[in-house]
Design a binder for these strands. Sequence first.
DNA 1: ATGGTTTTTACTGCGTC
DNA 2: GACGCGGTAAAAACCAT
Length: 323
Amino acid sequence: MTDTTTRRYTREREEEDEQTADEDQLVCPECGGNLVSDSERGETVCEECGLVVEEDEIDPGPEWRAFDAKEKDEKSRVGAPTTNMMHDKGLSTNIGWQDKDAYGNALSSRQREKMQRLRTWNERFRTRDSKERNLKQALGEIDRMASALGLPESVRETASVIYRRALDEDLLPGRSIEGVATSSLYAAARQAGTPRSLDEIATVSRVEKDEIARTYRYVVRELNLEIQPADPESYVPRFASDLELTEEVERRARQLLQNAKEKGVHSGKSPVGLAAAAVYAASLLTNEKVTQSEVSEVANISEVTIRNRYHELLEAEDSVPGL
DNA sequence: ATGGTTTTTACTGCGTC
DNA sequence: GACGCGGTAAAAACCAT
């Protein structure tokens, strides 16, 4: 299992590399010649015809003109190159730790105290900043996915609370923002009694189902979220309305499920399957027939599973006298 | 990693329209 | 002949250990 997933991940990465490598070798739109970037001028030009494709690029090189070779060696760009590896691109303030002034002289004790305070506050603001940024992106994602799944406002609220907690407890390092955001939403939807299956979640998320499941388990464990297995009944209204069935069917399906619950038929079985079977069975009992394949379609469950479950449901029902 | 359970896939046969 | 349904065996997925 782990073998296959890691293998897949590495393969994806290779593909990405190939892609970016392809993109690097650009071709002139005019004559088809190779494009070369001239960082001296900040332009990308065609080798063949001299067409300038891009201007005003950022020049990562020295920012002074060099008048001779010696000067070229001495004068380099001030400061570290910017990088996307850091959330602030390495541009935010850093205060040295050495308690020396710009000339290397030791600071007075009063100055040292002052610098210490500045360091503390600078660090506070900076980490708060990065978390804000992180949060903003995650909340955007949660919003997007929630509306794609037709989940109400309250679920988004819950999801963002969960995400904030994950952030506060430092659960993020080593995990993708996307993944944790998705897991938060998944958890929130289940908590709110409007569950969406992992498959449904996965279709709107940017991360793979495997990763969502993994991260979800992790988040639930670390935050001690108490989430009971989804109640099959909570799927019924959605399926019923997707199939344009009446309230009557819906009520009947609920009855079947409640009865099954009392008999303990349902433990260990997938809630979605149970719900789908209940809807199907109810549609038969109320003469509003829908086919198994229709139900399996909206519930994303195999017909076989529906068959198996609905037999069990009816058996449980038969043993109740007077129904 | 492993073993037990559940779900899915694929295929087959039967009855009906 | 296509469709709905039932059943089965084997593969795959899932879960707890």
